[in-house]
Amino acid sequence: MTTENASPEAVESTAHLDALGRHFGDLRDGTHGDAVSRQGKERLFHDAVALLDPYAREVLREFDREMLHGTGTLEATGVGRTPDGGLAALWTLSWPEQRDAGIQPITLMAHYGRGFHHPHLRGATVAEWPLNVFTREQAAAEVPTLRAIASADLHNLVFQRDFRIVPSVVAGRKGE
């Protein structure tokens, strides 16, 4: 898919299709970016996490500001080994009501499971999305995906308990 002569709006609206195209191309070609070996793919995973980091933080800060009234705590783990020998990096946003409810925080996770062909994104309650990020522009284009994962995670966390875990919703209730 080419976006060289497209308007900025068209580029933005097709970024998710470009990411899927890279994902499917990797599957077809047996590669991840320019890497064929596990070691090369892990190097690219580390690079992708570094590229995504400011955007993941930005998205979670938006949720903290708008939904949690600034009561959230944002944490980022950096890349680490998982028990199965894969790699993972987490960005989490926790807040008092969520912790009191005993449920997971809003989570953005980049992970490269031991048996995976290439890395993926997910949330605490939201499953897989391909992670094929190799440039700063591609990382920035993932912001809508990160927002969607975080939105779905918050929705599912409310579903696990109730709306009272979201400060902005409780503050908006009449008579309280």
Rank of each mutant, 00 (worst) to 15 (best):
S7R: 05
P8K: 05
A10L: 14
A10C: 01
S13L: 09
S13N: 11
A15S: 13
A19M: 04
L20E: 04
L20H: 05
F24G: 03
G25C: 08
D26C: 12
R28P: 00
D29S: 11
G33W: 02
D34P: 03
D34R: 13
R38G: 03
A50C: 04
A50H: 11
L51Y: 03
P54R: 04
E58T: 12
R61Q: 15
F63P: 00
F63W: 08
R65Y: 06
M67I: 03
T73G: 08
L74R: 13
E75H: 13
A76R: 10
A76W: 04
T77I: 13
T77L: 12
G86R: 03
W91H: 15
W91K: 09
P96H: 11
P96V: 08
R99F: 04
A101S: 13
T107Y: 04
T107I: 06
T107L: 13
H111I: 00
H117D: 10
H120C: 04
R122E: 14
T125R: 11
V126F: 08
W129K: 05
L131S: 01
L131H: 01
L131V: 02
N132T: 12
F134A: 02
R136I: 00
A140V: 02
E142V: 03
R147G: 05
A148R: 12
A152Y: 07
N156S: 12
L157A: 12
F159E: 15
F159R: 15
D162W: 09
R164G: 12
R164L: 10
V166H: 06
V169Q: 14
A171V: 09
G172D: 15
K174D: 10
K174C: 07
E176F: 11
